[in-house]
């Protein structure tokens, strides 16, 4: 298969720390590729190597069949996690500057800047100094600056971090348009599982520098069990582990984990399993404060694969 981006045995070592360990990934042309992993899992390091910003300890990266070291500048557009903006320039000046840096002819530049400002709802702020923009506007400008030269590959590193739901919708629509209308290949890293689920055609889950899973969101959710999750909260959370130990031994329970003080029990046809769960609760003589049943989500998959321990 022809990949737009292909990483082969990509490794990055910092002293004793193996940040990325033999990563092999192929990203198809025109897909939105989600990159998930806990903090410090090696996502940003992997992406930096994949776009040629960081020299790998070993391994190779090919962009459209060409070694990343030899690709023409401007093939990749990166929207970084941090805001990378000139605070004393206006939105339009910033976009014009970046277009000039990519040698976009003036006529085309003017049209693109106009369209970007319109697509990302920044027309009214075109001549406003960046330092006077709101957080959401700055994030949208951050994205616009990364795509003003119309790169073939767009890397979005946690693009909607800290955005309100309205701004997030604008951003999501724009990312979909990048793929559907312009045929761009988009790499998306995010901690917002809903975002990865809604936007990604395929998702790679990475932890401890290694690729754990690579599949479509639907397949990933199926892989760790179709069905539902019973989400319950005990009055006395110090008894959580007792209940987890008991339920883990039940044959109909696929998995049981503690997430933010609550217990998530995954099981096929969870509603039918509720009487069994409640009997266990009574046997342990603990009180249920809150209980709900919901469908399996990507976050459940993520927690199931990467665990609940903090990485920072």
């Amino acid at each position: 298969m022809d990949f737009m981006i292909e990483a082969k045995d990509l490794t990055k070592r910092y002293g004793d720390l193996m940040a990325v360990d033999g990563l092999n990934i192929g990203i198809k042309k025109g897909e939105v590729f989600g990159f998930l992993g806990p903090n410090g899992a090696g996502k940003t390091t992997s992406i930096k190597m994949m776009v040629g910003l960081l020299r790998p300890t070993s391994g190779k990266v090919f962009i459209n069949g060409t070694d990343v070291k030899k690709i023409e500048k401007g093939t990749i557009g990166i929207c970084p996690q941090e805001l990378m903006l000139w605070e004393n320039l206006t939105c339009k000046e910033s976009l014009n500057l970046m277009a000039d840096m990519y040698e976009v002819p003036k006529k085309i530049r003017d049209l693109r800047v106009k369209k970007l400002l319109s697509d990302l709802f920044l027309v009214e702020k075109a001549d406003t100094i960046v330092s006077k923009l709101s957080g959401g506007m700055k994030r949208r400008l951050n994205l616009a600056l990364s795509v003003v030269h119309e790169p073939e590959v767009v890397v979005l590193d946690e693009p909607s971090e800290g955005l309100d739901p309205q701004s997030r919708r604008v951003l999501w629509n724009y990312i979909r348009a990048l793929r559907d209308e312009e045929g761009k290949t988009v790499i998306l890293t995010t901690h917002i599982m809903d975002e990865a689920d809604q936007l990604s055609d395929r998702i790679a889950i990475i932890d401890h520098g290694k690729l754990i899973r690579l599949d479509t969101p639907e397949s990933l959710k199926k892989e760790i069990g179709e069905g539902d999750v019973v989400d319950l909260k005990l009055s006395d959370t110090s008894r959580n582990q007792d209940l987890i130990n008991e339920l883990a031994n039940e044959k109909d329970v696929i998995s049981v984990v503690e997430v933010k003080g609550r217990i998530n029990i995954r099981a096929l046809n969870a509603v039918a399993k509720l009487p069994m769960m409640m009997q266990t609760v009574e046997r342990l003589d603990v009180q249920v404060e809150d209980i709900s049943v919901r469908q399996n989500t990507l976050e459940d998959v993520f927690i199931d694969l990467t665990g609940t321990g903090l990485r920072e």
Binding site: K73, I76, I78, P80, L83, L85, Y102, L145
Partner: peptide, 17 residues
């Protein structure tokens, strides 16, 4: 520090520019 140099670095800008 602000990362704007990284933006410029990714572009076709040369050190001379």
């Amino acid at each position: 520090e602000s990362g704007t140099l990284l933006r410029l670095k990714l572009s076709k800008m040369r050190s001379f520019d």
